[in-house]
Design a protein around this nucleic acid. Structure first.
Lengths: 213, 213
DNA sequence: TATTTAATTAATCGTATGATTAAATTTATC
DNA sequence: GATAAATTTAATCATACGATTAATTAAATA
């Protein structure tokens, strides 16, 4: 019946993965991204994962533990990919590549933008300190370094503050995704298959042209 | 002692304002903006307003009623001001003026950006349908019309979709404010008195240059 | 085979939540 | 002065919440 989880209790056969743990992470990612930490109870997560609520305490210790594990599981891969792009040699297209990879990753992982935003907004993020330390600071630092390099190379304006330029980039990249459902209603956009490509192309052009010398 | 509210029950003297109602709206605005609808209980709002929790039911019917009244009270003035700017004659600086007014208003009313974002993000907004209908659609429509006018006048690129351009503008304007506390930590910015002006000037330039022909 | 370890379940704990009510108090109206 | 209307309070309701526990099951280990 259910191919992803055993229903019977008892010690699992060795070599079998922790399927329940993964189901909980997936359910938590989807629900927390859509409705936020406070709106989602552990019972709802457990129900979505088709799992007993006590398993959350068993695997993650607490609701907050589950949330933190989910955030780490979600954003660690992105951080790796971004740092790889940055580690590449001095490349005239480095900023464009970085921007493109950033937006494409957000577009391909629809839960990321809401999760980022819920942590960032005001003082409301449940693990704001931890999230900033783990991801935002690192990402912001990488981006600022890249922008300063581009400024030194004369490929973008040098009179602008690098931090503000980085902030503009993140703004342009993240917001359209979190606002996507609303955008459809407000602007009457249809979710055509090429919407993502058009959005990325447009935003990329606005940004690169906006920071050009 | 407390100059803004009577502590005694009983029918108030005629001509006296509904001070308690205003205290509740103010407390709700601040708390909901900072921590979100689900994280804030009616008891917390009442405590911050120095008022009995039952007053929320008395004046607003429910927690959601308070929230809706607060949103309306918060955003109605902005909508009026924006529509006034748009109603002005064909002006070469209309887009710049609109952008400036938008960002300045967000900067001067720090609770606005978080409230907007919490309603917009994913499917999570408590009154998302109502909020979109009341404010987002109207604002988005006004902005798109303005952009199309500017395109027709040849002051900005015409090959770009007006809706996407509007989306870029809102992204650039709103996100920096909701991310402000994080920005400080990530980029080590100090809250200097001129930060707001520098942010607005920088963002305005990125946008206008980004959409220029 | 006997024992230990890992996973799962059902039941329950104390607390916080949104909501509601009846009573009390004060002013307005007749 | 008597009655009605408006505001505030304290107490309470049923429910939902995060968390924890003891018991149960099955595989691993000895």
């Amino acid at each position: 019946m259910n191919t992803t989880s055993r229903k019977q209790p008892g010690r699992p056969p060795s070599g079998s993965e922790q399927a329940v743990r993964q189901q909980l992470l997936a359910a938590a990612r989807s629900l927390f991204a859509q409705q936020g930490y406070d709106a989602i109870s552990v019972r709802k997560v457990a129900e979505a994962a088709q799992v007993n609520p006590a398993m959350i305490h068993y695997y993650f210790g607490s609701k907050e533990g589950l949330y933190e594990a989910m955030l780490a599981d979600t954003f660690a891969p992105l951080m790796e990919r971004l740092s790889m792009v940055l580690a590449s040699d001095d490349n005239p297209d480095a900023l464009r590549n970085f921007f493109k990879l950033y937006m494409q990753t957000l577009g391909a992982n629809p839960w990321m933008p809401p999760l980022i935003l819920r942590e960032v907004v005001a003082e409301g993020g449940r693990l704001r300190g931890w999230f900033i330390q783990q991801f935002a600071s690192k990402g912001g630092g990488m981006l600022t370094k890249l922008i300063e390099r581009e400024q030194a190379a004369g490929r973008i304006r040098s009179d602008a503050d690098a931090s503000l330029t980085a902030l503009s980039m993140v703004s342009l990249a993240v917001f359209p995704f979190v606002a996507m459902p609303v955008t459809r209603e407000v602007f009457g956009m249809r979710v055509k298959t090429d919407y993502l490509d058009r959005l990325i192309a447009h935003t990329e052009r606005v940004f690169l042209q906006g920071v050009a010398p």
